[in-house]
């Protein structure tokens, strides 16, 4: 990666390096609409326009090493306002995907590895998961109006399968109850699966398409196993 004071010889840059990328970054007119619409603009020097321009210059290493592609929240406002229809969030994901997996910031990649290996980001064993769900269901059943409430796990032929965010079986178990109460009041025929229940797919954030495919495939497999046609994926 180049330091800011270093002079980069443009003649040596290969401007064609990113030309096969399908995000239209070469059409940038440097108007700055993206930068002014971006909610993360300015954080640690983040600027979507800079990112686009560096891609069109072919400065791939600098982009991959920089911290700011990871500051983007993927909200897509930039793409929405871009007069040249440049697909900036996709460009950001592409840049993230090029980073060495061990250098992916924070717990994103570690969590993803855990999910790929064990089915969820927390490495939570199946029996622990079932225990937590049943425990929370009992608490719900103690509330007036919810007498006899049970969380139906692995119910074949249910109407809806819902995935579960790992946070909800970890620190935010109270949040499980809101969904369940709605289901109960609506007399919905629902279920959750005891295997591969994880709804979070951190491959989306790290640009790891293969991991996303695995995670999505697992949910589909659970739907088939339980013969459920409708998925609720509250991520």
């Amino acid at each position: 990666m180049t330091s800011p004071s270093e002079i980069i010889d443009m003649d040596r840059l290969d401007h064609t390096r990113c030309r096969t990328w399908p995000f239209l970054q070469d059409f940038c007119v440097t108007c700055g609409m993206c930068a002014s619409s971006c909610p993360a603009s300015g954080i640690d020097g983040f600027d979507p326009r800079m990112l686009v321009r560096m891609a069109s210059f072919g400065l791939v290493e600098d982009l991959v090493d920089a911290r700011w592609p990871w500051i983007c929240t993927m909200c897509g406002k930039c793409e929405n306002v871009c007069p040249m229809q440049i697909e900036i969030p996709d460009l950001v994901r592409n840049i993230r995907s090029r980073r060495d997996r061990e250098k992916v910031p924070g717990i994103l990649h570690k969590g993803l590895v855990a999910a790929l290996e064990t089915g969820n980001n927390l490495r939570l064993p199946k029996e622990d998961f079932i225990f937590i769900i049943e425990d929370v269901a009992e608490e719900v059943a103690e509330e007036p109006g919810f007498e006899g409430f049970k969380a139906p796990i692995d119910k074949k032929g249910a109407n809806i399968l819902t995935t579960i965010h790992n946070k909800l079986v970890n620190t935010h178990t109270e949040d499980l109850k809101h969904w369940w109460k709605i289901f109960h009041a609506a007399e919905e025929d629902w279920t959750a699966t005891s295997e591969n229940w994880e709804g979070t797919s951190w491959g989306y954030f790290t640009g790891d398409d293969d991991a996303m495919k695995v995670m999505a495939g697992r949910i589909v497999a659970q739907m088939e196993r339980l013969e459920v046609n409708t998925l609720l994926w509250p991520e």
Binding site: P4, E6, D9, M10, D11, D47, R49, M50, R53
Partner: peptide
């Protein structure tokens, strides 16, 4: 030709 690119905040050189 040497210049400071205002968008990437990098210094560039061109010798066409």
């Amino acid at each position: 030709i040497e210049f400071f690119d205002e968008i990437t905040s990098k210094n560039f050189r061109l010798t066409p």
